[in-house]
Design a protein around this nucleic acid. Structure first.
Lengths: 252, 252
DNA sequence: CACGGGAAAAGTGCATGCAAGCTGAATGCC
DNA sequence: GGCATTCAGCTTGCATGCACTTTTCCCGTG
């Protein structure tokens, strides 16, 4: 075993990996909102590397779907559409059902303890900012994925979970973490008991309710192409005019 | 709609995307076997670009799991372990069940025709090399994913399918495509009929049988860490010696 | 005052150059 | 003769530089 460590994604002490991790975390903690600009020079200067490296990191993040890369334009934090968000959650449900199916009844005492410790941390973070709560909740799922010992599964679950995180920061305003934490505890219990179908059902329900809590209205209220938001209002003004709107104010 | 085209992966006419596509195809057609070296300058020279671009492309491919990147060493085509292959297939099954679930009964006549045309092409390719058959079979699944209109799902299915392709080229020697083609036809039929549970079952069975046909023996006979292969034989020679084996022959 | 054109500024796309690390083989030692 | 050592080369890691594109702002015009 071992020896497979590097590559695969994330780990390794490459400069670009470091930047990727930093940006990833900044994005899922909403320090960088969707739509935020990510100029190569600024990134390079901030992290003490050249544009080449910053650029490479942006490429990786774009492959993960966290960053949007447009030719000859400044890269921005991705702004998933409502439909993309829904798709991401659908995929996530299947992936995580697989995770818990593989894990049910297979966890050691220390692993159960580790999971419980993490949920305790989530509990303690309840008073803090939403961003940290969301991050911890996401990390719980990634921790589960890690326990499958399948690097591929870890990668996919992480990626799709990060994407969902991004979504949450976009569409879900008043975030209630309490129930999610209880659901996490229930999942751990079922996992320990070894009831595969039960835990799959729990996970399904858990993610489904997170998704519906988040994606109640298919209408993105904030950000996201002013053009789309204003489309219905524009009709009465510009029945014949081409939809030009020369310079739209850019957030941030 | 539209406007989402680029980014996401693959498409776009970036030089790096072009190289990625070319390499990806070369890898899944086994023109580049697992373990094959991919030096940056050679790639750059071959594609008429600088090392910078070749390097970036290798980075993307590594993120997809097709290429293995080792610090300060020449990149090589990935050589998934048997376990990783099994994991990839498990994930693939879940993902593709989701695909056909979303598609059942939702396909237009022209889409059905497109699928049938593809399988016809698979049929015609039966006489040719295994590599082309495998590629076509894989592309059938990716075509299916495309029809969901979910870019994220397309990306994951493509990625995991390519990985499985790589696996097939590693572990499955005598490849029999006939049954697979019939299974494809059965899936199309069930899809057209709109029986979601039936088509999910078909897809599950199809992928499962492909996997078992491919992964019969958990022992990788070719390539892949001579150390692992020789481990059982080494016991009688080196009961006490540290497992040093200073310089193991490296397959060209 | 609004509108349009054009030039400067900013930012990306890409190639090249230099330093550092790994590979492999020839050399010296036992 | 077998083994460790060292040195040359090849290859990667990364920064910098130049060309091109996009954006922004300024100014003249209707």
């Amino acid at each position: 075993m071992a020896a497979r460590a590097s590559s695969e994604t994330s780990e390794s002490s490459d400069k670009v990996s470091v930047i990727c991790r930093a940006l990833r975390r900044a994005i899922i903690e909403q320090a960088l909102e969707p739509g935020a600009k990510l100029p190569e020079d600024a990134l390079g200067e901030r992290f003490g590397v050249s544009r080449t490296i910053a650029r490479h990191a942006l490429g990786q993040l774009a492959a993960e779907g966290l960053v949007e890369l447009r030719r000859n334009r400044i890269a921005v934090v991705a702004t998933p559409s409502w439909q993309e968000a829904r798709d991401a959650f659908d995929i996530r449900i299947e992936l995580e059902r697989l995770v818990v199916r593989q894990l049910a009844g297979k966890l050691s005492k220390s692993q159960i303890a580790e999971l419980n410790a993490h949920v305790d941390a989530e509990d303690r973070a309840r008073g803090g900012t939403d961003a940290v709560s969301i991050r911890l909740a996401t990390e719980f799922h990634i921790l589960l994925a890690h326990m499958t010992n399948s690097p591929i599964l870890v990668r996919y679950v992480s990626e799709v979970a990060y994407r969902c995180c991004l979504t949450l920061s976009l569409y879900s305003r008043p975030h209630s973490t309490e129930c999610a934490i209880n659901e996490h505890r229930a999942i751990i219990a079922a996992l320990a008991k070894g009831d595969a179908t039960k835990v799959m059902e729990l996970m399904h329900h858990h993610l489904d309710s997170v998704a519906t809590r988040a994606l109640v209205a298919p209408a993105p209220q904030r950000g996201r192409d002013l053009l789309d938001i204003l489309a219905p209002y524009a009709d009465e003004v510009t029945s014949n005019r081409v939809v030009k709107l020369p310079k739209v104010a850019r957030r941030g």
